[in-house]
């Protein structure tokens, strides 16, 4: 951990569906901390109207690797090649009932930059009862406003993630809408996630 990449300056918004991230272009074998923003990661985008009249997606998770900053093909969903899965507002980890990995998560309320370490205890894996990052407004990473029909990430809510291979990361959700508009409305295209993350590849709990 000699050099640090702590800025989010290398943000790229790439074409939809092709790839959905930028990365700090660090090569995978280095042990440098990765700090990056993933932009417009498709999270089961809407493809039509269901029989009940509501918009539906393909009902499929997108799988994301924090190490590579890339989307992992769904054919690899049974592997440890991914760390987080996204479907609508639901986030799964690669562990427990959701995947074969050692993944887990926990939530803390703090300023993203102030979270220096991943804790030793408190890790939760996805189970049949509940996900490590709970669903529902106010329970996990977002609040849903019924009046404006807008889903907003909760400021100060940090998702701590243990990856499939036992590394640690912290994630701050930025937006649920395509292009991450500052003040989204019901007209914006939903189910495209933007988030900041810091990934520590060396196996330690330190985020710097």
């Amino acid at each position: 951990m000699k050099s640090r990449i702590t800025s989010f300056s290398m943000i790229l918004v790439l074409a939809l569906f092709v790839t959905a991230c930028d990365s700090s272009s660090s090569n995978d074998d280095s042990q440098e901390v990765i700090a990056a923003r993933a932009s417009d990661v498709p999270s089961d985008p809407i493809i039509g109207i269901g029989s009940d009249g509501r918009p539906v997606g393909a009902n499929a998770f997108s799988f994301f690797s924090l190490r590579t900053g890339q989307i992992v093909a769904s054919t690899d969903s049974a592997s440890t090649g991914w760390d987080l899965g996204f479907k609508g507002s639901t986030i799964i980890v690669n562990g427990g009932t959701s995947g074969p990995g050692n993944g887990a998560a926990q939530i803390v309320d703090d300023i993203f930059g102030d979270v220096m370490n991943a804790p030793e205890n408190g890790w939760i894996q996805d189970s049949a009862d509940t996900y490590a990052i709970p669903t529902g407004s106010g329970n996990g990473w977002y609040n849903y406003n019924f009046a404006t029909q807008v889903l907003s990430p909760i400021p100060g809510r940090v998702l701590l993630v243990r990856t499939a291979d036992g590394r640690y990361a912290k994630v701050s959700m930025i937006s649920y809408y395509q292009g991450a508009p500052e003040t989204p409305t019901g007209d914006d295209t939903a189910r495209f996630l933007t988030f900041d993350y810091v990934f520590q590849p060396d196996g330690s709990r330190k985020f710097q």
């Binding site: 509501r54 918009p55 409305t185 007209d187 295209t189 189910r191």
Partner: peptide
């Protein structure tokens, strides 16, 4: 009419 996740009803 209302919008839900970008779709109008």
């Amino acid at each position: 009419g209302f919008q839900q996740e970008g779709y109008a009803f």
